[in-house]
Each structure stands twice: as structure tokens, then as C-alpha cells.
Design a binder for these strands. Structure first.
Lengths: 133, 133, 133, 133
DNA sequence: GTGGTCTAGACCACT
DNA sequence: GTGGTCTAGACCACG
């Protein structure tokens, strides 16, 4: 239940939290009933303001991904499995679209773009080093 | 000389313009002397504020990518495109890194991510429809 | 475009704002493109903190009811008409359910409850004074 | 001696208990000497915290509606129910007022609101299914 | 001018 | 202990 927060990024802190939860839940890494770190704990751990964490949690609750259990913290809500399989790729799509558009504008070919992407996937541990799929 | 502008994206409009020009020039798609649409034309075409276009053009001029020619609008300045693919790939890298990281967090495999990326590249006209490279 | 805000109520201010917008939009009183008062204006008018207003607007934007127009304030979003006809009654249901349950617990009959409700509707100007429908 | 508790509602659980007891007693549905479920039983039955039940019972005792009988649990105290319907209707009024106001804001007519309310009353068993009073 | 974000700190309510 | 709400004030980004 770790968060990767970097106040230096251009993307707001509360949004970093929101997006990480979204992906971890969509990816099935976090499951229904899992408890999240408390607002205060997460805030202290990353030296950020509790209200910033609270804002993120509030948005995720409104979104239906988290469930508030009064006096007992937040937990991953009962996400319908229908949400998962198809929508994981949908969550990835914007990033891929942006990358493809940029490749076109840079006058790069598909082969070069794919090679570079494979390299990134390897860095993420999603491909073997010598795999050239 | 088309721009792809979406006021709905989180990235500011002026920045969408700046980055597209940067890439088209770096990629050699636009070349020295090519004329850009006038501030008014671009603003009207995309229903955005002329000041927004003007701000983008101003930044690009300060950057040396564009040249203001009195009474004749803006044109691509005398800059050489990044000749070597490596330089252009470097500009593409951030987008690919982000996509790969998100794929990992979503619990997706390299194969699925690559398939989806190929689909995006096809939509950009960088791959043949039936190519599965 | 008036808001009826009472800091004395048990329901949080930001939620009073959210619910009023929801109903006015669902009821068709406010329509697509209508501009809302600015965060600062609404805050000053009711002597509340701008952040409180901002929180409400933010939730309504996430909900899709409002649209942010950068640098130009918020406006009623392009609400699909499908949203209106059936869902208006759905928005009223919780209040009616609660009232019916309380009537039952108070040992009141349907006739008495209906009479009292009609009286309330008259006070809201929804029925003629001498109407007994 | 049933309670209708929903942790999902915005109204706190302890308050849901308090208000239901108040109404059942005022309506004469529960009478002097009637025994309430034990703190533990009620807590287990609805999967809520015993302290929450205890808090509600304590408030009701302080209010004089319940009586603690050593070793024998809580029972309805020696209170006369609100005999006149007018008194009971007064307790129902806030809920009806809220519903009528919301109907107005939703742009609904009296007829539609009344029909929906009748349906709710039927679900509570206060009207015959085919009654259209 | 617009809204967004974050901070610091206070107070409340629920369990 | 938990989260929720509000305030006051600062700074940023956008148009």
C-alpha cells in the first residue's frame, strides 16, 4: 500500500494519489476491502498537508473506487469486476495516443517508435532484456 | 500546417501549440520559411482566445523557432531539424516512459501494451492497417 | 442564478451548493452554457470562503454537470437530455422514502400524510390553495 | 422491534437509532415497558460498533424515553405517546417540507410528486396496492 | 479577471 | 483513533 509521490512534478499531488489508486485498483493489485493508509499517516509520511490527501480520498470516494467507513478509515470499494478487464486498456489509451501523435509530429517511423517503447517496457520489467517480440 | 487543439485536455492550450510546433520543426515536418497561420486565423479556427495564440507564438519566437516578419505573419526560423533520429527519439521518450509506467501499474503485459500502441500508430498513419510488425 | 445558502444548517455549505446546482440543472431551470457566478463572487456574496465554493464547483465538474472554461469561469455543461426526464423523480425519491418511513414509524395513516404533504406543496406554490386533487 | 439502519446514509448511525426510537414511541407503536434489543444484539445484527448503539441508548435514556433496568436491558420508559395527530404530524413536517422544496427545485408538478409519494407509502404498507386516494 | 493548489491550523463528528 | 469541514492566506497558471 505504498504511494509514489513527488511534489516536484507538474501534476498536482492530490492527482498523483488519485491516479495511482485508480491504476492499482483497476490492475487488481489492490482489492475490495483493502484498507488505505489514514489521511494523517499518508500526509506525515510524505510531508504533505492532510487536506491534500483528504481531497484525493474524497474524489476517489465520489468516483466509487473507495468506500468510507466512518471512524475506521477508507477501504477499496466493491469494484464490479466488469470494470476491470476491458477498462484497463482504456486507462492506458490516452498515454499511447499522445505518444503516437508525438511520434508522427517528430517525423518518426513506427519501427523506431516501437523499438523505443519496447526499451521503456523493459525498464519497467515487463519484457525480458533480450526479448524482441 | 494543422494544429490539433483540445481545450478539454489538462495541458494548457498555449502549451499544446508550443509543443506541436517544437516537434514539427524538430522532426523536419515544417521547414525554414514555412508560414504559420495568423494569430486571428488560428484563434478563430479553434474557437480560442487570440491572446492564447499570441502567447504561444511569442514563446516560440523567444525560443528562436519562429521568426516574426513584419506584416507577413510568423514563419519557421532558420533552424536545422534534429537530423539524427536519436535526438528526435529523445523528445519522444517522456511520453513513452509515462505510458510504460502506467502499463505496469495497470498490471498489463508488454504484449497487450504493444498491440494497443500499434493500433494508435496506425491511426496516425505511421503503419499500414494490416501491418503487424 | 441565485443560491440559497444557510451556514446554520447541519448540511455542509459545499453540499448545499452541489445539491442546488444538481436540482436546477436536472429541473431544466439552468441550461447548457449558462454561466455560474465566479468562485470569488459567490464566496463574497454569502460571506463564505472561496475554497468552499471551489470545492463544490470541483465536485460538480467531476460529476459532469459543470464545465470549466479556462479563464472564463464555470458554465452548465452539455447535459444530455436523457438525463432529465426520468431522473428528476429519482432525485426526489430519497426525500419521499424518508418521509414515508417516518410516517409509518409515527403511526400515521396515508391520508394524514398525504394531506400534510399537499399543504407543503401549496406553500411551495405547486398547488392552488383550494385544490384538493 | 426492528431497526432500519443504513451505514451508507449521510446521517450518523447513532442518530438513525435515536430518531427511529423517538418516532416509534411518539407514534405509540412502542409502548411503556417494551424491551429493546440489547446493545450487543443490535450491534451484531447490523454489523455496527457496540459503542455506537450504546451512545444512542444513552442519549435516549438522558432524554427520558428509555429506562435502564439493571441486568434486564433497556425498555421504553413511562411516557405517553403524542396522542393528538397534530403533534405527530409536527414531527413529520420537516421531512415533508424538504421533499416539497426539492420537488419545486426539480421543476416537478404537484401531481407527479404526490404520485411518487403514494408509491412510497404503499411500500411502507400504509396504502393498499390499488388505492389511489 | 478566472479557477487551482497547497499550507497551517482549528473545530467537529463518528467509532 | 478515524475523516470532514471551514477558514485565512499565499502563490501559480490561464486567458
Amino acid at each position: 500500500m505504498d504511494f509514489d509521490i513527488d511534489p516536484g512534478l507538474p501534476v498536482p499531488i492530490y492527482r498523483q494519489i488519485v491516479e495511482q489508486v485508480r491504476r492499482q485498483v483497476a490492475g487488481g493489485v489492490w482489492r475490495t476491502g483493502d484498507e488505505l493508509p489514514s489521511v494523517r499517516a499518508l500526509a506525515q509520511q510524505h510531508a504533505i498537508n492532510p487536506m491534500t490527501v483528504s481531497k484525493a480520498y474524497g474524489l476517489l470516494e465520489a468516483e466509487g473506487l473507495l468506500q468510507r467507513r466512518r471512524g475506521m478509515g477508507m477501504a477499496v470499494a466493491d469494484v464490479r469486476p466488469a470494470r476491470r478487464p476491458a477498462q484497463r486498456l482504456a486507462l492506458l489509451d490516452p498515454a499511447l495516443q499522445a505518444a503516437a501523435q508525438q511520434a508522427a509530429q517528430l517525423g518518426l517511423g513506427a519501427t523506431a517508435a516501437l523499438q523505443a517503447f519496447k526499451q521503456c517496457l523493459r525498464q519497467q520489467g515487463l519484457m525480458e532484456e533480450d526479448d524482441d517480440a
